[in-house]
């Protein structure tokens, strides 16, 4: 139900099947492809390329100056650290939630399925407001994280909740339980079964979820606006830095930070893929 793996995981199954039989382009489908590519280029590719070009336009000086600016460096550090912590928690909690949703049976489980998707459906600014109501100045719990580093952590945890759950869940559903039972009957302990049988099969899905979660984490903006206070050197994240640069008319500096974010996301995805392969092979 709800957001299945195909909508969140950068297609694992899909890509594998993408090669293979396909008809050669006919005249009308060729025209269709032309139109689609033109729109995609105008909307996505050209604007994104302009960001990268802009960042290196003035040589490397703008790039270096932007990065050595203490406020920007602090923002980048905060963003990457918090996104990393949140991703680690998501890997553990997301897998656990997926496990409970697939293997456990209890009243209200269907409700939890909807709850998982709420952070995805909720507008980010509303997400910030929602968290502020429980963890803000009027908190009924007496926990006020507003304008602290923890607010960044909390907001990222909220908006990235669905990613690992929704990528792991379908894989866990299809996992053959006979193999687990066979392992157990051959004397494997529960821990061994988990480590040697279950985790290797889940590794690619967990990785895909973690990559999405990290990419979303370092790029988050909306949910932090009301919650974190955007205090320079303290709770200001990279996206807010970019916005400040844009508002000051310094588009080159904004583009530099944006390019770094793109590079970090790319590096994370590559790294996670390597880790995933390693886990899968070892198991």
């Amino acid at each position: 139900m709800t957001v299945d793996s195909s909508s969140l995981a950068p297609g694992t199954a899909r890509r594998r099947r993408a090669r293979g039989t396909g008809a050669p382009l006919t005249r009308s489908s060729g025209i269709g492809l032309g139109i689609a590519l033109t729109w995609f280029s105008l909307l996505v590719l050209i604007p994104l390329c302009l960001v990268v070009i802009q960042s290196v336009d003035g040589g490397w000086t703008t790039f270096r100056e932007t990065l050595t600016n203490p406020q920007t460096a602090a923002a980048l550090r905060l963003t990457v650290t918090q996104a990393l912590i949140v991703t680690v928690i998501n890997v553990v909690m997301g897998t656990l939630i997926a496990w409970v949703l697939v293997r456990d049976e209890f009243w209200g489980k269907r409700l939890l399925e909807v709850v998982i998707d709420i952070p995805f459906a909720l507008p980010t600014i509303v997400a910030g407001l929602v968290l502020l109501s429980l963890y803000g100045p009027d908190s009924p719990l007496g926990v006020n994280v507003a304008n602290t580093e923890r607010s960044v952590f909390l907001a990222l945890l909220f908006v990235t909740l669905p990613f690992v759950v929704r990528t792991v869940q379908p894989v866990l559903m299809e996992l053959d339980r006979d193999v687990e039972e066979a392992a157990a009957s051959l004397g494997a302990s529960r821990f061994t079964t988990l480590r040697r049988i279950i985790l290797p099969s889940l590794a690619p899905a967990i990785t895909a979820g973690a990559a999405l979660s990290f990419a979303r984490g370092i790029s988050e903006y909306g949910s932090l606006v009301l919650l974190s206070g955007n205090l320079p050197l303290k709770t200001e994240v990279a996206s807010v830095r970019i916005l400040t640069y844009i508002e000051n008319g310094n588009e080159a500096a904004a583009a530099s930070v944006a390019t770094i974010l793109l590079l970090v996301a790319l590096a994370a995805i590559v790294l996670l893929q390597v880790v995933s392969k390693w886990v899968a092979r070892r198991g």
């Binding site: 105008l42 994104l48 802009q54 999405l212 988050e220 903006y221 944006a258 996301a265």
Partner: peptide, 15 residues
């Protein structure tokens, strides 16, 4: 899906 909304805004503004 992996691009920050702020970067999207910047990209469209540059174009």
């Amino acid at each position: 899906l992996s691009v920050s909304p702020v970067v999207v805004g910047l990209a469209l503004l540059l174009a």
